[in-house]
Design a protein around this nucleic acid. Structure first.
Lengths: 106, 106
DNA sequence: TATATTTGCAACCGAACGGTTTCTTAATAT
DNA sequence: ATATTAAGAAACCGTTCGGTTGCAAATATA
């Protein structure tokens, strides 16, 4: 059972959950109200998100508040970095090309 | 069969392929040499990557060169943006807190 | 104390995943 | 003309995924 952040965000429901709890902590029941699935299905998703440290729990009586571990999201950003370098280079090359064309017009 | 970019990058082999062909186009055989799987398995991965426009083909005789469609990668970056805002705000708040502490020390 | 609520866990189900083996097609080399 | 090479397609296999139903544990309430 592979369990990394990329597998975690592969599912659209999990991405939606992440978006929901990014700003305020929520209980499983409250989260489940936003979806057309059972509470148990959401519970499973939360387990997966917990397993890869994307989410943290805060117990309060019999309720559990889930919130996003925003730091973990930076891992995706970090992976993207290598490609960001590429597309920025491409952009600069395009920029150079455009200014060359401009100069020629003059 | 869901087929979006998030599902595409969920598999570690596919992420490796993306990394490989980010800078130069490669044939399926050449790509497969970098992995401990069959060429057919790589072919399947390339099909998935093609299906969500992450990869483009260039036919050259009986060879097909695959390369990364870097623009598509920006979609992940775009999705990350909402969270980037959050972690930057957190950082600024931390920054404020730190300067407040500094001032108090003075 | 008995009952209701919140949650997680286990068992099960159909579909999708990732892989292999085998086969076909098309282009190149001998 | 024949053999070789590059690549994709199809069929199959075991595993994982996402979901459901049913149940147990813990906490709160009557």
């Amino acid at each position: 059972m592979r369990r990394d952040i990329f597998q975690a965000i592969a599912d659209p429901t999990r991405r939606a959950i992440i978006g929901l709890i990014a700003l305020q902590a929520m209980t499983p029941n409250a989260i489940a109200e936003n979806f057309n699935t059972t509470r148990q299905a959401i519970s499973k998703h939360l387990r997966i998100l917990t397993e890869c440290d994307l989410v943290k729990q805060e117990h309060q009586g019999r309720e559990i508040y889930y919130s996003l571990e925003i730091e973990k999201m930076k891992e995706i950003d970090k992976w993207l970095d290598q490609f960001r370098k590429i597309w920025e280079t491409r952009f600069n090359q395009l920029d150079k090309l455009l200014s060359t064309i401009k100069k020629q017009k003059k």
